[in-house]
């Protein structure tokens, strides 16, 4: 299934819009409440600081009290905002996913990253944060899984104590359990230039594959342990689609065919399926953005000829027609 310009039926769209209106009311209420709370806290904090400073004569302690109250208030506000945004996202994404034939869960812990890591499809990382797990069956009965991932690498700083974490990947990870078995391993990785490829390829057991398209070879480096298998999988059409996907993606897409699975890592530079910020209006644009992210993800699956199976007719539609 390819997502058309409007893949949601009118009933689903109406349901989403109604739920979004409720969420928007909650957002406005929370935002107003947080603003009021902020003003009250500011007043109370200034008063407390004045008392501590004048009555007890401890000016430094007064600043400490102010900062502590401010931090507690910020943590509390952040907690409330993220709780509402996550709930909104889970509800909207869950409904969109159901309408399009996906299973959805907000928490994606347990998604196997090891295979991606082993194939070198991801940058080196020490900490992962996975969410928005979507799974579905393709038209040919293969299982497709998709998660939104944020990967971080540990780094040390002279200025600050303890380990720091730097984001090295924010994007989507796709995994398809392919019906056909790949006898060999084929990797489509970002091209690292002549020197980078030579150094990177030095210790590899597989060998580089030079394909016919100069543009493709400038963008990607292909490694395989069977030259024929690589060309069977990377037909001119697939190569063209890889370039199209690259044009839509912040980082170069990394693709692996290995052990009967197709793995795709798409560094988008920003999280997907997100609700708008608390200060932005939550209208239909919120789920349109989620749909755009899904269109993009399914476009990546289509790259390799994987289409979703048509979703089952909805319960309500069935009972309505009966």
């Amino acid at each position: 299934m390819v997502l058309s310009d409007d893949p949601l039926d009118s009933a689903t769209r109406a349901e989403l819009e109604s739920r979004l209106a409720e969420l928007e009311a909650e957002r406005v209420a929370l935002f107003d409440w947080l603003k009021k709370l902020g003003l009250i806290l500011l007043g109370v904090t200034l008063a407390a600081m004045a008392i501590v400073s004048t009555v007890f004569g401890a000016e430094e302690d007064a600043y400490f009290v102010g900062i502590a109250v401010l931090l507690v208030a910020l943590v509390y506000a952040f907690h409330r905002i993220s709780k509402l945004r996550n709930r909104g996202k889970a509800e909207l994404m869950g409904r969109i996913a159901q309408a399009l034939g996906f299973d959805y869960r907000l928490n994606a812990a347990g998604f196997p990253l090891e295979h991606f890591r082993r194939l070198g499809l991801l940058p080196r990382f020490d900490r992962d944060n996975l969410h928005d797990h979507l799974s579905a069956e393709t038209a040919s009965g293969e299982r497709l899984e998709l998660v939104d991932a944020k990967l971080e690498r540990k780094s040390r700083s002279r200025k600050r104590r303890g380990p720091q974490y730097r984001t090295v990947f924010t994007g989507l990870l796709l995994r398809v359990d392919a019906a056909e078995t790949f006898s060999d391993q084929v990797l489509v990785l970002k091209d690292s230039g002549m020197v980078g490829n030579a150094l990177g390829g030095w210790l590899r057991s597989d060998e580089p594959v030079h394909l016919e398209s100069t543009r493709f070879n400038e963008t990607f480096t292909v490694y395989a342990n069977d030259q024929v298998e690589a060309r069977r999988l990377l037909t001119p059409t697939v190569m063209q689609r890889c370039l199209e996907l690259d044009a839509q993606t912040a980082g170069t897409p990394q693709i692996g065919f290995s052990e009967g699975r197709i793995l795709i890592a798409l560094d988008r530079g920003a999280p997907s399926f997100e609700m708008p910020q608390i200060w932005q209006k939550w209208d239909a644009a919120a789920f349109e953005a989620m749909l755009d992210d899904l269109r993009y993800a399914l476009g990546a699956a289509r790259l390799l000829g994987r289409e979703l199976a048509q979703p089952e007719p909805r319960e309500t539609a069935r009972s309505g027609s009966a």
Binding site: L211, E212, Q227, V228, E229, A230, R231, R232
Partner: peptide, 10 residues
């Protein structure tokens, strides 16, 4: 034929 085409490209 698909495999032959791939082998031919190689």
């Amino acid at each position: 034929e698909s495999n032959i085409a791939a082998a031919r490209r190689f």
